[in-house]
């Protein structure tokens, strides 16, 4: 449609700026750029987002044997870039509604966009117990694919009971001699993952501790030594060399605080049926969207939908099939 413009001011202008470069964002970019809509993505971390640091993705359509998260992320990025999407590494700090244009305050300066897609996804939550911050990256970790290799033949504690906790525990068995999986209530991972988990439980590689709340991560001389848990009101000690935490997701919506974009009680972004937020011309897709299923396939699908809704918005009319 049009390239970067430097019209009235020195502020760069784009048709669409996508905040984030995860599966929702990259899928949207594939659609917008194929329609020749000038698209810039802003990413503060790694393209692919959480998918890129996930060991293995088994439920993304089109990969009968599954696919490494990093490979999926890399392929999504390549596909979007093939059609002309540009990823800028930086952070969007605020979005201002200036009518026809949205002004984005970013770490690379101000930018203007005719439409914006918020696809910032989520990050792993912290548990907030003593020792977690003190031993961060020195015994407490949130990325198994990054840091698991440091625990060859060591004991590990993994905290969490959802898909990520189970999936990453299984991944960590390739390094660790034994894993204690501390689950606050019951294991909530998908049935297929629970079946996989059972294999490792049977072989003695993973021990699952249900109804076990984590109370403290204890170390000495810069090394983690054990985790204190509470099980049925009693203190239980888990000796360990390291701790991996996967206790759920925290939406990346801090930058929208005090903006005109409405969030729900979980700090996820609300939208209408057209995926448009409470700020006209600003859309939302993926894990950051209120009601999101937190699935990569859902995020990718919603990214594509958002791109089509953005095209309609930019063109000022509905797609013929909806007229």
């Amino acid at each position: 449609m049009r390239g970067v413009q430097m019209a009235d001011t020195d502020i760069p202008k784009h048709d669409v700026i996508i905040v984030g470069a995860g599966p929702a964002a990259l899928s949207a970019a594939i659609y917008t750029t194929r329609e020749d809509i000038d698209t810039l993505l802003f990413e503060r971390g790694v393209p692919g987002g959480l998918a890129a640091i996930t060991d293995w993705v088994d439920n993304y359509p089109g990969f009968p044997e599954g696919v490494a998260g990093l490979e999926l992320a890399s392929n999504l990025q390549k596909q979007a870039e093939r059609f002309g999407a540009v990823i800028e590494f930086g952070e969007v700090l605020k979005i201002h509604d200036e009518g026809k244009w949205k002004r984005l305050e970013t770490t690379s300066g101000d930018m203007l966009a005719r439409a914006v897609l918020i696809a910032t996804g989520s990050d792993y939550k912290k548990i907030g117990v003593p020792g977690e911050v003190e031993y961060y990256a020195r015994g407490v970790h949130y990325c198994a694919t990054c840091d698991g290799a440091f625990y060859r033949d060591k004991r590990l504690v993994v905290i969490g009971g959802g898909n990520s906790a189970v999936q990453e525990s299984i991944f960590l068995t390739r390094f660790a001699s034994h894993i204690d999986l501390l689950v606050r209530s019951t294991v909530k991972a998908s049935e297929i993952l629970q079946d996989d988990l059972q294999t490792y439980v049977d072989s003695g590689k993973i021990t699952v501790h249900l109804n076990t709340a984590t109370e403290e991560i204890v170390g000495e001389d810069g090394k983690v030594l054990h985790v204190i848990g509470k099980q049925h009101g009693k203190r239980v000690d888990f000796p360990t060399d390291g701790v991996f935490v996967f206790v759920g997701l925290k939406p990346n919506s801090e930058f929208l605080k005090d903006s005109d974009i409405e969030l729900d009680h979980l700090h996820l972004v609300k939208s209408n049926d057209d995926l448009q937020t409470t700020m006209k011309g600003v859309f939302v897709a993926g894990d950051i969207h209120s009601g999101a299923t937190m699935q990569i396939a859902s995020a990718a699908g919603e990214g594509a939908t958002a791109a089509l809704k953005i095209r309609e918005y930019l063109e000022g009319h509905k797609h013929p099939i909806q007229n």
Binding site: V46, I53, G69, L70, C146, G148, A149
Partner: peptide, 9 residues
């Protein structure tokens, strides 16, 4: 490491 997503970046 082989699986680290931030390393290629």
């Amino acid at each position: 490491t082989t699986t680290c997503a931030y390393c290629p970046m």
